[in-house]
Simulated scan of single mutants.
Amino acid sequence: MTVYLIAELKVTDEAWLPDYVVRVHEIAARHNGRYLSRSTNIETLEGEPRDVTGIALLEFPSRDDVLALMSDPEYVPYGEARRRGSICHYRLIDDTDIAGAIPYLTKPDIA
C-alpha cells in the first residue's frame, strides 16, 4: 500500500543541510522513495501556523520501504545530523480513503 512520509522541520543549524539534501535524495530513491515536494514556501490557510521552516513530502510503495530507509546504515548519520540541527516531526500516512469505511462518512456518488 502506498504511503506518504511528511517531514516538518524547523532548522536550528544549517550545517547538515547541503550533504543531507544531496545524499538523502539518492538513498531514499534506493528504498523506492520519491520526493513529491521539498519546500520552504509554506502558507497556512487555516489554523495556527506551525513553527517550521520546511516541509518535505515523499511517496513510498510501502511502510517497510520507509522503515528500511530510516534504518539504512548509510542514512543513519544523516538522520542523526538532521535531528541535531533541527526540530523535526516525521509523520507517515497511507493512501486509504476513510470515506465509506466510517458509517457517517460516505463517498459521494460521482457520475
Rank of each mutant, 00 (worst) to 15 (best):
Y35W: 07
K107F: 04
V24Q: 05
P61H: 09
T2N: 15
T106N: 09
E80V: 14
Y104W: 07
V3W: 07
P18W: 11
A28S: 11
L9P: 00
P73D: 12
L69W: 02
A81P: 06
D109Y: 14
A101T: 12
N32E: 07
R84T: 02
A7E: 01
D94T: 13
A29V: 10
T44V: 01
I55E: 06
A56F: 10
S62N: 05
D64S: 12
V3M: 07
I102K: 09
L92T: 13
L57V: 15
T12L: 10
L69K: 00
E48F: 04
S62T: 15
M1A: 15
M1K: 13
R38W: 08
I6Y: 08
V3Y: 12
E48W: 02
V76N: 03
Y78R: 03
R50Q: 14
E46Y: 06
F60V: 06
R23M: 05
I6V: 12
V11Y: 05
G79T: 09
L69R: 02
G54P: 03
D109A: 13
N41R: 13
I98K: 12
A15L: 03
L36Q: 15
T12Y: 08
L9T: 12
V21T: 15
S71C: 02
R23L: 04
T96L: 14
K10D: 02
L17S: 05
E8K: 13
A101Q: 15
F60I: 05
D109E: 15
G54K: 06
L5V: 07
Y90M: 06
L105G: 02
L9F: 10
D19G: 13
G47F: 12
I93R: 04
W16R: 01
Y35D: 00
R38G: 08
Y104R: 08
T2F: 14
C88S: 13
G100E: 04
T40D: 14
I27S: 05
P108Y: 08
V11M: 06
Y90R: 10
A7V: 14
D13Q: 03
H89M: 09
I27P: 03
D19Y: 01
G47H: 12
L67Q: 05
V52F: 00
I55K: 09
R84H: 00
W16K: 04
P108N: 07
E48D: 14
M1G: 15
G100R: 05
A101L: 13
I98N: 10
G47M: 12
T96H: 14
L17Y: 09
E80I: 14
T44E: 04
R83T: 03
C88I: 05
D51H: 09
F60P: 00
N41L: 10
G47S: 09
A68L: 00
V22W: 03
A7Y: 03
R34G: 04
D94G: 11
A28W: 00
I87C: 03
C88P: 00
H25K: 13
E80W: 04
N32A: 12
A111N: 14
L57F: 07
Y90Q: 09
S71D: 11
S71N: 13
A101K: 15
Y78C: 04
L58T: 02
M1P: 15
E46C: 02
E74A: 07
D109F: 13
I102E: 06
D109V: 14
G33S: 04
L57K: 05
E26D: 12
P61V: 00
P18I: 01
D65A: 15
R23K: 12
Y20G: 09
G85S: 08
R84E: 12
